[in-house]
Simulated assay, not measured.
Amino acid sequence: MAYPIVRNRRLRNSAALRSLVRETNLEVNDFIAPIFVTEGEGIKEEITSMPGVYHWSLDTMEQELAEIVDLGIQAVLLFGVPDHKDPLGTSAYDDNGIVQRATRKIKSLYPEIVVIADTCLCQFTDHGHCGVVHTTECGAEIGNDDSLELLTKTAVSQAKAGADIIAPSNMMDGFVTAIRQGLDEAGFENTPIMSYSVKYSSAYYGPFREAAHSSPQFGDRKTYQMDPANAREALREAQSDVEEGADFLMVKPGLAYLDVVRMLRDRYSLPIVVYNVSAEYSMVKAAALQGWINEKEIVLETLTGMKRAGGDLIITYHAKDAARWLQGR
């Protein structure tokens, strides 16, 4: 049947009717809020390229946590900014490292918060790469299997500190297998792995690298992060992680890769996580500061789109603002 019998506008006649037939609902418990914790005391330092996002020291972090809890956000993604870096990123797997101490503090203050620990080496190495660097006749390369050993040590140390979920973001081949085995052997067989399964070598990470102090000191990450032009490769990466025991699959970045989110949603039953990354956030903030856009409407539309594409959870720097808007605050 067609017009005039079919009139699709009938279901748009009022706000109540539109709400009744709404297919995708964005909720506060969809959000994961990133937190950047740094060494030092009395630190609350705004990240220049990410207005409204801060570096926190352990003694000031409670301000951020209290706000997150008050807004009903149930999970945080924890990034550590250490004061010591070396070629092997030893502070990443130091049981007294910044992420480990921050995790213990968060769980002591708010045990109900789900602490997700980013598991990588790039913030902790002096070269800024996500693995061990080897020098060869052809130049520097990132070793895969020896990097897995250090990443596994990091994951186990984070779990010992109380992390509820381990989120490896390094994109080394076999990282889920290695970390799953290491966690199981250490008695953390019930600790889930939120795998950065599909992580592109993206220009959208620029502001994050300022926030995490993790820019590579040479070369780039194209040998281990994915080519933005590839989608079928994303399915291979995700399939590997499913077979290796991942509990969540992530697509990063989100906005330019919603087709990939949908591909994973259609193929896999695991929870799908979308990372609404730093440049996606910063572009909205910059345009809003100029008065060019309605920030609230743009943010909620974008996050709804990520959910509509198939995301179950969204990591977003907009988490607090979006929670306030959804609650009418």
Rank of each mutant, 00 (worst) to 15 (best):
5 I>T: 12
10 R>A: 13
10 R>Q: 14
17 L>Y: 07
17 L>T: 15
19 S>L: 12
23 E>F: 03
24 T>E: 12
26 L>Y: 00
32 I>M: 10
44 K>I: 14
47 I>Q: 10
49 S>L: 13
61 M>D: 00
69 V>K: 08
78 L>E: 08
82 P>K: 00
93 Y>F: 14
99 V>G: 00
100 Q>R: 00
100 Q>H: 00
105 K>P: 00
115 V>T: 01
118 D>Q: 03
120 C>L: 06
123 Q>D: 12
125 T>F: 05
127 H>F: 06
131 G>F: 09
132 V>R: 08
132 V>F: 07
139 G>Y: 06
143 G>D: 13
146 D>Y: 11
160 K>A: 04
173 D>Y: 07
177 T>A: 14
189 E>F: 13
189 E>L: 12
196 Y>K: 05
197 S>H: 11
212 A>C: 09
213 H>A: 15
215 S>Q: 13
222 K>M: 08
224 Y>C: 02
224 Y>N: 03
225 Q>Y: 07
226 M>S: 07
228 P>Q: 02
258 L>W: 02
258 L>P: 02
262 R>A: 14
266 D>M: 06
281 Y>F: 12
281 Y>P: 02
283 M>S: 09
287 A>H: 03
299 V>A: 02
303 L>F: 04
306 M>T: 03
307 K>S: 04
314 I>K: 10
321 D>S: 14
326 L>H: 07
